[in-house]
Design a protein around this nucleic acid. Structure first.
Lengths: 181, 181
DNA sequence: TTGATTTTTTAACATATGTAAAAAAAGATA
DNA sequence: TATCTTTTTTTACATATGTTAAAAAATCAA
C-alpha cells in the first residue's frame, strides 16, 4: 500500500481494517451473480478471473501477488458482479469489506486519494488489456505474456491462457510451436 | 455531475474549475504519445477513441454526450497516453486540467469521493467492454450496440464501428446482411 | 441537377481458426 | 514402478474471416 502513497497515520487506519485469510486451491472467493461484500489483496497465490455464459467460460484476467481482487460492479454499483474468481493455488490473502473501505474514504482524505489511485491504476491496467485484445494478434500477446509475466505461463494451464488470449487451445498450441522455432 | 452525488458547496467548487470549449469535427482533442493535461466532458457531440500502430488504427470506444474523456495513463501515471481522441462532429465540451482536479481531490473530501465514483464507473464500463470483446461474437456485440446505442450506429461510419467490433468492414457488412433477414 | 467524392456492399480467393477426436506427454496416486 | 488421470499436442476437415478489387449506393459541392 505504501507504494500507492499511503502513509501514517492513514496507513495504520487502513491496515487495521484488514483481515488475513487462507484458502485452498480451487476455492471460488468471488462468484458471479452475487453482490460481493469484500475486496481482497493477494499476499501469496494466483487466481483466474472468468465469466461464464451458457456456452462457455472465458478467462479475462489473472491476479498475482500484490494484486487487488475486486468485483467492480459490486463495489461501485452495489449490483451483482460479472466475474467468478477462483484460486489456482493454495493462497494467502487479506480482505476488507466494501463497507469499511467506503467508510474510510468518506472520513479520511488521504485514504480517499489512495483508493482513487488504486482504482485509477486498475483502470489503466484494464484499458491496456482492452487495447491489447483489440489491436494485437494472439501471438503478440502470448509472447508479451511470457516476457512480462513468465510466472503466469509457468503456473497456469494452457487452456486458461488460451481463453485469456481469446483463442482455442489448439490455436495456442500452434502459436507455441511457431514461436519455438 | 449531480447524478454522481456531488452537492453544494463542493459542486460549485468543481463547476468553477470548468471551462467551456468548442471544436470542429475532425479535431483531435487528445493525441497519443503526449501527456494530456486536460480532462473533458462532452456537452454535445461524439468522439472516437482509437489507438494507432504501424500497421493499423483500432477504434476502441466512442464517447457521447455526458461522457468523460480522459487519458487514463496521462492522469494516473503522468505518462504519455495510448489513445488519440477525434471529434466526429462539431462539438461542445467542458474541460478542466488534471492539476486542478488533483488539487481539488487533495483538499475536498466530497470531490475526492465524487471523482472516485467517476473513475469507478469508467472502470465498470471498461470491464464490460473487455468482457464483451472476449466472450461474445461480433454479431452479438453489433446487435447490442444497435439496441443500447442506436445513435452511435446512426452517427458513425461503419468502418469505425467494424474496427470497434474487432472485425473488418467486409465482415461487418456480412453481419448486417445476415441480421437484416 | 450533375459530377465528384466518400462510404458501403459484393465477389473471389487464400488462409487462419475452430471443432472433434486421437495420440502423446506430463503429473498424480497407490 | 506401474497405473490412472489430466494436460498438451497433433491431425483432418469444415468454415468463418481477411484481403484485394470492383460495383453500387450515398453524400456533398458546385
Amino acid at each position: 500500500m505504501r507504494r500507492l502513497g499511503l502513509r501514517e497515520p492513514s496507513l495504520s487506519l487502513f491496515y487495521n481494517a484488514l483481515e488475513e485469510v487462507h484458502y485452498k486451491k480451487g476455492t471460488k472467493i468471488i462468484k458471479a451473480g452475487r453482490t460481493e461484500p469484500h475486496l481482497y489483496f493477494i499476499l501469496d497465490g494466483i487466481a483466474r478471473v472468468f465469466i461464464q455464459t451458457a456456452e462457455k467460460e472465458t478467462v479475462f484476467c489473472f491476479c498475482l501477488e500484490t494484486d487487488v481482487i475486486l468485483s467492480y460492479n459490486s463495489f461501485f454499483n452495489e449490483s451483482p458482479g460479472y466475474e467468478t474468481i477462483e484460486l489456482l493455488e493454495d493462497s494467502q490473502l487479506v480482505r476488507v469489506s466494501h463497507r469499511k473501505v467506503k467508510a474510510l474514504c468518506k472520513s479520511d482524505l488521504t485514504i480517499a486519494n489512495f483508493f482513487n489511485r488504486l482504482i485509477g491504476l486498475e483502470l489503466v491496467k484494464t484499458e491496456e488489456r482492452l487495447i491489447g485484445t483489440q489491436s494485437r494478434t494472439a501471438t503478440a500477446r502470448y509472447t508479451e505474456l511470457i516476457t512480462l509475466f513468465p510466472s503466469i505461463v509457468q503456473r497456469v494451464q494452457l487452456g486458461y491462457i488460451a481463453s485469456y488470449l481469446g483463442v482455442s487451445q489448439v490455436t495456442l498450441s500452434r502459436i507455441r510451436k511457431k514461436i519455438s522455432r
